[in-house]
Every structure is written in structure tokens, then in C-alpha cells.
Design a binder for these strands. Structure first.
Length: 493
RNA sequence: GGCGGCAUAGCCAAGUGGCUAAGGCAGCGGUCUGCAAAACCGUUAUUCCCCGGUUCAAGUCCGGGUGCCGCCUCCA
């Protein structure tokens, strides 16, 4: 079975062949730390989190590098606006970024380098570009001479002439060609600076990634990723820098995730419709957002709305409710160690076969360019099979039942882990969801528990009128009571 | 102006030329329940934006049209 992935550079799905058997080196462009992360950052982070999780699930040893751009015009602007040193602005948003990612259940990268720790490497790379005749100095600035690099435009699929025709290139008299980009910028008064052969200055945006990827992954590595907006100019320029200097391919595969829209509109600061991760997590649980994102293919645009997120949450409840059902029966602790595949009665065997199909189909979907939407379809298929089985078995649990359910649990947990889902204990999941909702709505838990107790007594006395009255009263507060035998649980609608 | 993408049920969404077009949400009918909820069973696209073409066979390939969207400037 082979993993195939869509390579932006060739615009085709290709079979994945790592440089070193069993290992994968992946570099993803991280954030510029000048503001809080929004849902778009969340998508990118979740996409590459699932990609690295799946690569590990498949047995690869993954080295995942995701950088922080901690010196840049916008950070400097923010520093000026707030009166803080630029390094403190960066520090603050790095910390916030990490908190957000932890909250989303995104695994930390193997290395999270910062641009300012690699200034020396950048200077050396720029010098190498001078030696190759690809860089030129103009005052205290250094630019990359785009037309000296023949394959410029190969990633984004455009030629220099096409781009020249575009009206929106900025006019800068210091550049030989309007498409040339800055490798090094002279610092102005009050801006951070580093000494360099070209005077006091700071690096251009693109150079850091060329340097840090080589530092941690080598001149050529397996996968380079980022948001689709980075294809041009950022990644194109990285290629020009890295390949211009080394003469070797930068990355063998390029992966780009699609954008998030909000209510069918592009999310952007100018439209004022960005939604920060912090805000969003105040009203929804992280796993629901993850499920929502994974229900679309990573390259498609995704439209974020309150209702689509609410739907995803219901889907997540469905998954956890199956996990809860399994847990409940397994808690019976009957010994099933003597059950074997061969001794399994046909009816159980039939269910087991369908459940055992999950990891196989899951891998088949994920191997096809990380098709998480299809993979989730298979997961829900297995959920339905399990639910049916659960409904049939509940009355008379046998050792065979436990054997089958134990296997189901393993498969759900295994595939779930590869997606970053189903990591919580199901009981905790539902209690947490309920208590969170209750506190958001300011409901008094003691009062609810008291009324449930009263209703329990009414039911015992077959006083259905009183029991129903309590149900209705609580229902008005959106509290749904669920009777199961003699116990009653509740949840928020 | 240049480059690229998308159009599948009420909504979201997968679909790698060939058995009955995944899955989720919503809806409807039923089972279960004192009543409910959850769960389960059944049901919801004779058809995949439109028009041509290739093929024994097309949602899937090709050409044309229409409609959305992205990038080309900082952006995940």
C-alpha cells in the first residue's frame, strides 16, 4: 500500500517516497507573531497536525519543523503602537500561539525555531547568493535577482512575463526588476538591527525559512507545507534562495491547505470578520472544530459558520456516545481471554469482520492524499455497525461480545488518535460538555439535581403527572432528561 | 489582464470510467420508552450546473457555455 499525495509543484498526486526509508522530514511555515491566531491558522495547524499524526500512525519517524517569524514589519509596527520592545511583542504572541495550539490538541512540532536565532545563517546564505550572482546590493538593502534564476515561477506555475504583465507589482526604484525581493533590509531609526556586511539591517521575510529548513532538515527534505496563499511569493522565493544556492531541490513534495471562509466571505482583517481561536473556543469545544475541518478535504475551501460547527458537534457526540456504550459494557469485566477468532460464533464474527475493516479502509482513504472526509465516513460506518451490535447485545452480554467490543474500541482509538479525535474518556466528554453549557447559561446544578431526585420519587410512585411536569419545567431551560432504567441523566439541548 | 480551482439531495460533503452515487446534519415513518431522550430499523439524488463529444460504459475523460471562488500586494 502506498501513500499518495498531491504535489503543488507538479499539480498531480504522486506516490510518496521518503529520502530516507522510514523517515520523513517536514517543514511548515508557521506564523508571524504580531497578533492572535485565528480560525485560518487553526485550519492550517490542524491539517498539518493530522498529516504528521498519520505519518506516525503509518510508522514513519517524523521530524516536523514549524517556525516562528519573530522579526518583521508588522511586529515592529505593533511594538511602536504598544511601546513594547519588538522582542516582547513576539514573545507574547508566541506564548499565545502555543496556548491556542495546545487547546486545539495540536501536537508540538519536533523543532519550533525562531528567525532571530538564525541571523548568522541568513547572512551566510545571502553571501552564497552573491557568489552565485543571484543577489545584488542597493544601498543598505540586498535583493534577489529573480531573472537570474531560470526556474523562477515553477511552483506557482507562472512565468516571469506573466507576472510582469500583472499591474499590481510594487514600484521600488532600488530594484532592478519589480519582482526582485528583499533578502536584507537596511534598518531605519528605532528598528531592530543586526550587523552584516551590508550594514545594520534585518532579514527579508523569505530568507529565514530557507535557512531554518536547511539547518534542521538538510538541503533537500521530504515535505514542505503551508497555507495556499504562501505558494506565491513566499514559497517560490524560498525555492529561488535555497535552490539558487545549493543547486539541489528544496523539497520533494509541496502541500498547501485551502482557506477558511466565514459565512461565505473571505476572512480578512480588512473585512473585520476574523475569528480568533480564543474567542471560538469560548463557545465550542476544540474537537468539534477539528471534526468540522476534517470533514472537508484539506485542499478545499471551507466555510465556517455557527451552524456548521454545531452540526460537527452533534457528529462528535455521536462518536463519543458509541465509545460510551462500549465502555459501559466493557466495564462489566467478564473475562474474555479465552475467546479466539475461531471460537467466535458466526453472528459475532460477522460484526467483527465489519469492524476490522475500519483500519484497512481508514488507511486506504488517508493514503489517498489524506482524504480525511472519506476516512471519517468509514469511521461513522463502523460506528453504526457497533451501535447496532450494542443494541442487540446489551440485554445479554457474553464473552464474545466483550471480545468484539474490545477490538472495536482499539480500532476507534487507533484511528481516532491518527486524526486527533476521541482522546477523551467518553464519560468525561459528556460531563464536560454538559457542565460547560450549564455554566455558560448560569444554571444551578444543585437545583437540577434536586428536581431530578424529586422526579425519581414521583416516578417510583407512578405519579406520571408530576414526573412530566418536572420534565417540562427543565425542558423549558433546555435541559433534556434521559431515563435509563432507574437512573436519570441530563444534558443541555 | 495573467494563472488556477470549484459546481453532487434541504444543508455540509466524499467519490482514483464499470456492481445498489460514501458519510454527517436536518426531515419523515417505525421499534424501544409510563411519556420522552439516546440508540436502532426503514425512507429521503432514475441522477451529479447546461450543451456537445470520446467510449461497450462518464458524476468521473475531452471541447464549449454559465455561475461562484482563490492567487497575482502582507496573509495560514
Amino acid at each position: 500500500m502506498t501513500l499518495r499525495l498531491y504535489n503543488t509543484c507538479t499539480r498531480k498526486k504522486e506516490e510518496f517516497k521518503p529520502i530516507t526509508e522510514g523517515k520523513v522530514g517536514i517543514y511548515v511555515c508557521g506564523v508571524t507573531v504580531y497578533d492572535s491566531c485565528h480560525v485560518g491558522h487553526a485550519r492550517s495547524a490542524l491539517v498539518f497536525d493530522v498529516i504528521t499524526r498519520y505519518l506516525k500512525y503509518r510508522g514513519y519517524e517524523v521530524t516536523f519543523v514549524k517556525n516562528f517569524t519573530d522579526v518583521d514589519d508588522k511586529i515592529i509596527d505593533k511594538a511602536k503602537a504598544t511601546g513594547l520592545p519588538f522582542s516582547e511583542v513576539a514573545e507574547r504572541y508566541i506564548r499565545e500561539h502555543n496556548e491556542d495550539m495546545d487547546a486545539l490538541g495540536v501536537e508540538r512540532p519536533t523543532v519550533a525555531p525562531r528567525a532571530t536565532d538564525h541571523i548568522g545563517g541568513m547572512i551566510r546564505l545571502i553571501q552564497a547568493l552573491f557568489e552565485k550572482g543571484l543577489a545584488y546590493q542597493a544601498g543598505g538593502d540586498v535583493y534577489y535577482a529573480v531573472e537570474k534564476f531560470p526556474s523562477y515561477g515553477k511552483l506557482s506555475g507562472r512565468g516571469l512575463d506573466d507576472m510582469m504583465a500583472g499591474a499590481r507589482v510594487d514600484v521600488n526604484e532600488k530594484k532592478n526588476n519589480p519582482l526582485d525581493f528583499a533578502l536584507w533590509k537596511a534598518s531605519r531609526e528605532g528598528e531592530p538591527w543586526w550587523d552584516s556586511p551590508w550594514g545594520k539591517g534585518r532579514p527579508g521575510w523569505h530568507i529565514e525559512c530557507s535557512v531554518m529548513s536547511r539547518e534542521f532538515l538538510g538541503e533537500t527534505f521530504d515535505i514542505h507545507g503551508g497555507g495556499e496563499d504562501l505558494v506565491f511569493p513566499h514559497h517560490e522565493n524560498e525555492i529561488a534562495q535555497s535552490e539558487g544556492a545549493s543547486g539541489k531541490p528544496l523539497a520533494n513534495y509541496w502541500i498547501h491547505n485551502g482557506f477558511v471562509r466565514i459565512n461565505s466571505e473571505k476572512m480578512s482583517k480588512s473585512l473585520g470578520n476574523t475569528c480568533s481561536i480564543k474567542d471560538m473556543l469560548g463557545s465550542c469545544r476544540p474537537e468539534a472544530l477539528r471534526l468540522f475541518m476534517l470533514q472537508s478535504h484539506y485542499r478545499s475551501p471551507v466555510d465556517y459558520t455557527d451552524s456548521s460547527l454545531a452540526e460537527a458537534k452533534l457528529g462528535l457526540d455521536r462518536l463519543y456516545s458509541t465509545m460510551q456504550g462500549i465502555k459501559e459494557i466493557l466495564a462489566g469485566k467478564t473475562d474474555f481471554s479465552r475467546v479466539t477468532m475461531d471460537s467466535l460464533p458466526a453472528r459475532h464474527r460477522g460484526v467483527l469482520d465489519r469492524i476490522d475493516a475500519l483500519p484497512v479502509r481508514f488507511a486506504e482513504a488517508m493514503d489517498d492524499d489524506f482524504n480525511t472526509a472519506r476516512a471519517l465516513g468509514y469511521l461513522f460506518d463502523a460506528v453504526r455497525v457497533t451501535n447496532t451490535y450494542l443494541a442487540e447485545e446489551r440485554a445479554a452480554v457474553s464473552a464474545a461480545t466483550l471480545f468484539v467490543l474490545n477490538r472495536a474500541k482499539k480500532h476507534f482509538e487507533g484511528t481516532g488518535r491518527a486524526l486527533g479525535l476521541l482522546g477523551s474518556d467518553p464519560d468525561d466528554y459528556f460531563l464536560e460538555a454538559r457542565d460547560r453549557e450549564a455554566s455558560v447559561r448560569g444554571l444551578a446544578m444543585e437545583e437540577i439535581e434536586r428536581m431530578i431526585e424529586e422526579r425519581k420519587q414521583a416516578r417510583a410512585a407512578k405519579d406520571w403527572a408530576r414526573a412530566d411536569e418536572i420534565r417540562r419545567t427543565l425542558a423549558e431551560k433546555k435541559i433534556i432528561l434521559q431515563d435509563a432504567g432507574s437512573t436519570t441523566t441530563w444534558k443541555i439541548e
